[in-house]
Nucleic acid binder design. Sequence first.
DNA 1: AAAAAAG
Length: 494
Amino acid sequence: MADATSDATKSLPENKPPNLESKRWADEVDDPPEESSASSISGDKAASELKVEALTINDEESKINKFLDEPQDSNITAVTTGDTPYTSAASFEDLSLTPELLKGLYVEMKFQKPSKIQAISLPMILTPPYKDLIAQAHNGSGKTTCFVLGMLSRIDPNLKAPQALCVCPTRELAIQNLEVLRKMGTYTGISSECAIPMDSKNYVPIAKQPPVSAQVVIGTPGTIKKWMSNRKLGVGNVRILVFDEADHMLAEDGFKDDSLRIKKDIERASSHCQVLLFSATFNETVKNFVSRIVKDYNQLFVKKEDLSLESVKQYKVHCPDERAKTLVIKDRIFELGENLGQTIIFVRTRHSAGILHKALVDLGYAVTTIQGAVSPEDRDKIVQEFKNNLTKVLISTDLLARGFDQQQVNLVINYDLPVKHETPSEPDYEVYLHRIGRAGRFGRKGAVFNLLCGDRDEMLMSKIEHYFGSQVTQVERWDSEEEFKNALKAAGLL
DNA sequence: AAAAAAG
């Protein structure tokens, strides 16, 4: 239920730990499955993880916009331009949302109050003149709700045409975001559609497809571009454009070209379109670039040292050879994992996904595997099964590294560490952070095991530790059941 | 053959 605080202009209450009743953050779609996970988001850990500092910088004069009583206790930095004062939203009532949308938040989503990123970003998103926004926040902290709410609340219900567009890096993320939007918008009557490649059995040639009349479109770059260029998706009324995983969507080796094309075409057709860029990571290069492509924007950033999730315990395991890695998964993860939630095992290539899959299946274990070469139908099916908790262990390439939200995942295995494509001796820090963020959704407890083999892996691991300034605990013996047990206990999972 | 999307 809502805690409709009248004290709206004052700061967020995180200097005192949230009490039991108001503990649930928005974006927590379902009830925590067990009492154990309820405790995992309670107490000082959750409170200390979301400290906020905000300052306002005007082009000429700068002034402090207080979101908090204790700014030193903070880790999200907000910079706003212009003289629009933004007041952090202590409750959803502070946001002038329609009754239908509020009902969706409380009844369907079962939210009680905004999470920190929501409290800060939503006023910036929803307040005229609807400035662009670059927003960084921790994995699992509720970014999706920010832009979904932004899209839903900017729709003119009487205009049956696309007005909000969201571009995502994967099919899975587009589907997931659309599901959130539909659930949140249950009572609004707003129509929505997914722009992703259709599966083969429903295939309709583009020329035979009717034009899109849905008010919200969420999809992947290729299909969105295709629909636009074939005049099936008119963007003349689009007033809000969202890039989810924006750093990747605008990276040179990501979807930069597609994203810029889409953005330009919309801006040509539509007079004023607000652009929102959301991600948990923005490396310096991308940050500089995205700052150039939006203008008169507000921004929220988190220092990289503050980005590791405190609730997710990270471990490294030295394995003598590749075979030992498989044995760790077989003898440790499967055995101990019985009592755990779900597990995602990340591998570097599609090929190694297949190898590992076969090895585990041959040993008699039930695993499923997802990677980009799998057909769309099978991808959808594998994700559905995993989301329905019918499968416990999922092997994946970096396809699922970003954004995938499954609260029961509390174990992540890095079978291979993520490396940069152009310089494989360098770890991909952003991907590492996104991968470990698949565990510990919304402050839940989780554990990550990095399986290392050889000097190269050691070096990659130490670079990662150094970069984030965070401790990765060593499991001394890869074949010690005792040590893995202790590790999981220390992570709060056993 | 890096993954992803998509042609």
